[in-house]
């Protein structure tokens, strides 16, 4: 008995070997360099995810220039509210304080976004106002100082 390999087998084995080799070579060049560094992902993606520019500067950045506001705020109920909650993203203003002005919101609707009465809000958490009844026609900041709400203006 002689060891016989049918010609189909040898030819197909060759074809598959070429195919698999090609695949492995391609794979070698296509897999990103940092892939698998920390897990099944591109390690460099951690850096990519840390890259984006910030828009909100954080209130410590605000206090570097606006010490007076910090002091004012500290004395009243808005003390825990960070500046950018009302003033919007401030990073541009921090970098270019002369040209990039910060938002100064006003109006009943704006204050109402927190203070409007709603059954979902805990009474102990926030003073709620019925905008349809409370001093209609007046802007909130005519009486209240937003940095010191109970330091009434009039």
């Amino acid at each position: 008995m002689k060891f016989y390999i049918p010609p189909q087998i040898t030819r197909l084995a060759l074809a598959f070997a070429i195919f698999i080799t090609l695949f492995l070579v391609l794979r070698h060049f296509l897999v990103p360099k940092t892939f698998g560094e920390y897990g099944h992902y591109r390690g460099a993606s951690l850096i990519d995810n840390a890259q984006p520019e910030i828009h909100y500067a954080g209130q410590q950045a605000c206090f570097k220039c606006h010490q007076d506001i910090e002091d004012k705020k500290a004395q009243d109920v808005h003390s825990e509210i960070h500046c950018e909650t009302c003033h919007g993203p401030g990073e541009k203003h921090v970098v270019l304080s002369k040209t990039e002005k910060i938002l100064k919101p006003a109006g009943r609707e704006f204050c109402g976004s927190c203070h409007v009465i709603n059954a979902g809000k805990q009474k102990s958490m926030i003073n709620q106002i019925d905008l349809n009844k409370h001093n209609i026609g007046k802007n909130c900041i005519e009486c209240h100082n937003p940095h010191q709400p109970w330091e009434m203006k009039k």
Binding site: I54, H55, Y56, T85, P89, S113
Partner: peptide
């Protein structure tokens, strides 16, 4: 209190 500042800031920031 459902003010939505978080959702707004998130869109601005990201």
């Amino acid at each position: 209190i459902g003010c939505g500042n978080c959702a707004k800031a998130c869109k601005n920031e990201n």
